[in-house]
Simulated scan of single mutants.
Amino acid sequence: MVTIKKLFAQELLNAKGYPVIETTVILSNDIIASSSPPSGTSKGTYEAHEIVDSEIKRYNGHGVLKAVENVNKIIAPKLLGVDINSQQKIDELMIELDGTKDKSKLGANAILSVSQAAVKAGANNSSLPLYLYIKKLISSNAPKNYPTPLFVLIAGGKHAEGSIDFQEILLAPSVSKTFEEKIEIGANIYHLLENKLMELGLSTLTSVEGGFSPKVPNNTESLRLMKDVIKESPYKLSLDVSLGIDVASSSFYKDKQYFLKDKTTPYNPKEMTLFYKKLISDFNIIYLEDPFSEDDWSSWQKGFNMLSKDSLIVGDDLTVTNPDRLKLALNSNTINGIIIKPNQIGTVSETIEVVKMARL
């Protein structure tokens, strides 16, 4: 049996220049693996709690030394000697140590850094690629398929303040294309959009996640811009490519209304649903992520009934990779797609359980 011999964490900076935690696991046979969980730019209210130091003089309050300390002083002693192939046991021990529903005692970032490092160490020990090792943990016989990538082309919301209200305008290549063709289509249209923005005298600066953030009048105009770019490309809208929107509507929801630049007065939930219906029709939208606020369950239900025949209705802030939230969403018939993010729940094992539930 190969066990955890040593485990330690440190603070480092991510690509955005923010501190994050990285944990390293060393096994009894000296195999080593390290992992650093991501930290989202925009976060749902119901996500597991990420611990930051809140010391303004140091990294503007974004330091993670407390999370590092929790790994080194509390989690590490508990996991020494544990079988590296017992991923569920490793995660359950940390959940028990934390003792809170949202992992606010030790921090989801601390716990997940250990969970991910353990999975990578387990994969290395088994001489398997990480994806095959995780497939083994899921105990799935499903065939291996390449996913269809979604390309962020225009960014707004919390990803690009001062741009559109919607968080992302996405490009979805047709599922009939090969994976290589999908990548080529995404890259080509990205650069065609860049050229179009320069032609129109609009900014080609990119957001934190790579999408362009031109100052267009409203959300509808950003979709019209994308439609024009596709018309001028070798590709056909609805045949070769479609569009999607990560709405992230909780960011502009207030007092049971939705505030958008597309109308001088706020949208009520019924108007918002009708607005989406028109966008789906006008711009071939096949993907709508978080079209309603994370607490506006009634609108989710009514919107799903009206929109789901023509578009995927996807939960992110609504479901936050949480089995209880997903169960509620499924029972209330509000989504037919879900975003999976391990940092929203805090362990690999819990993430796998949500994936299994979503597939049923």
Rank of each mutant, 00 (worst) to 15 (best):
V175K: 13
H159C: 13
G186Y: 09
F166T: 05
L225D: 03
P149K: 03
S207R: 09
F151C: 08
S222G: 15
K144W: 12
N219Y: 02
G156H: 11
L200D: 13
K158H: 14
N125H: 15
A118D: 05
Q167C: 07
N218R: 01
L200R: 13
V152A: 07
G122M: 11
I154E: 10
V175F: 09
S222R: 00
V119T: 14
A160G: 04
L130C: 05
G210I: 10
Q116Y: 02
S127F: 10
S139N: 15
F179G: 02
E168T: 08
G162C: 05
H159Q: 10
T220R: 11
L205Y: 08
E194P: 04
V152C: 08
T220H: 02
G157R: 11
M226N: 01
F151M: 11
L193Y: 07
S115K: 01
P149Q: 03
Q116C: 09
L150R: 09
N195Q: 15
N218H: 12
A142V: 09
S115N: 07
F151W: 15
L223F: 09
L200H: 09
V208T: 15
V216M: 01
G210K: 10
K215P: 05
F166R: 06
Q116D: 05
S115A: 09
G162I: 04
I134W: 06
T178K: 15
N124H: 09
N125V: 14
Y146F: 13
K177D: 05
E221K: 09
L137D: 01
L192E: 14
N218W: 04
K135A: 14
V208Y: 10
E221I: 08
A142N: 12
S174N: 14
D165Y: 06
P143V: 12
S140F: 02
L150I: 14
A160I: 05
L197Y: 04
L223N: 06
H159A: 10
S213G: 13
V216D: 00
F212Y: 15
L197A: 02
T206A: 03
V208E: 13
F179I: 15
N125Q: 12
L112A: 05
I169A: 08
E168F: 10
L171Q: 03
G211V: 01
V216R: 00
T178R: 13
A142D: 14
G210A: 08
G201S: 00
